[in-house]
């Protein structure tokens, strides 16, 4: 099975989400094969799920002060602080043999790339429905999927390091008086690759493990490539029109 492999490094939140969508368009149009992409976020960013309220979830002033991008994803799920992590996206036609019609099953299939990659780094992990990957009962990866134009787009993050206090400095909580307890709960429920291994693992160091992991999980030959000029142009358009547009980011 043939997959295009893009490693696009650091991008702004709007560009990152725009490129995921541009790749979706080109795979849907038959202009590109199924595609796996790895990337990271510069500046750091908070993304909220499609159905979340932006102002309800995010301390916009704190993000502005810290120079943190804020964006609404095209996918559901919860708020994510994108700092020390590896982010991946997979775009596959819905009729591809790899993708079951059942959404829950397809999460499990596509998350196997994360699990295999973590295994190569020495972190034993499992899938936890609906959309998480856990190790030792703690979440180490969150994943989200949308289906558009006859394709599946799944993107997700692997926490390489996690700073829960820093994250909560950028998020709002439902009840301020319970903030301390919530932070302690999240510290118990979330971990990172670096924490599990007892040493710092950065993005560059993690790339080969996850590339191999996804290749095994997808039974795919990954062909390194760069986004096409058309994709980069569309990514810039989508970024400007949608992801950098308050009408989109504040739609809920």
């Amino acid at each position: 099975m043939r997959f295009r492999f893009l490693e696009t490094g650091a991008g702004t939140a709007a560009f990152n989400m725009g490129l995921d969508e541009a790749v979706l368009e080109s795979v849907a149009a038959g202009a590109a094969p199924p595609t796996l992409r790895f990337y990271r976020w510069e500046p750091r960013a908070v993304s909220v799920g499609y159905f979340q309220g932006l102002e309800e979830e995010v301390d916009l002033e704190a993000c502005a002060r810290a120079g943190v991008d804020v964006i609404r994803r095209a996918t559901g799920g919860g708020a994510v602080y994108h700092a020390a992590e590896l982010t991946y996206s997979i775009v596959v036609p819905e009729d591809h043999p790899l993708v079951p019609r059942d959404v829950l099953e397809s999460y499990w299939i596509l998350c196997r790339g994360v699990i295999e990659g973590l295994g190569r780094l020495g972190v034993k992990a499992d899938f936890a429905p609906l959309n998480d990957v856990i190790t030792g009962g703690r979440k180490v990866s969150g994943n989200a999927q949308t289906r558009k134009l006859g394709c599946v787009l799944q993107h997700g993050t692997v926490l390489l390091e996690v700073d829960v206090d820093e994250m909560f400095g950028l998020l709002k909580v439902p009840q301020e008086k319970l903030r301390g307890k919530l932070i302690e709960d999240v510290k118990q429920r979330v971990t990172s690759v670096s924490r599990e291994l007892g040493r710092t693992i950065g993005y560059a160091e993690s790339l080969d493990a996850f590339k191999e992991g996804f290749a095994v999980a997808l039974a795919a030959e990954l062909e390194p490539a760069a986004p096409t000029e058309r994709e980069l142009a569309r990514a810039a358009e989508i970024a400007a029109e949608k992801y950098a547009n308050p009408a989109w980011n504040r739609k809920r």
Binding site: G49, Y50, F51, Q52, G53, E56, A74, T75, G76, G77, G78, A79, V103, L130, N131, A144, Q145, T146, R147, K148, R252
Partner: peptide
């Protein structure tokens, strides 16, 4: 009425 949360719905 406003319905929000970290759920998923397809198509969004």
């Amino acid at each position: 009425v406003r319905i929000r949360g970290d759920f998923f719905a397809h198509p969004e």
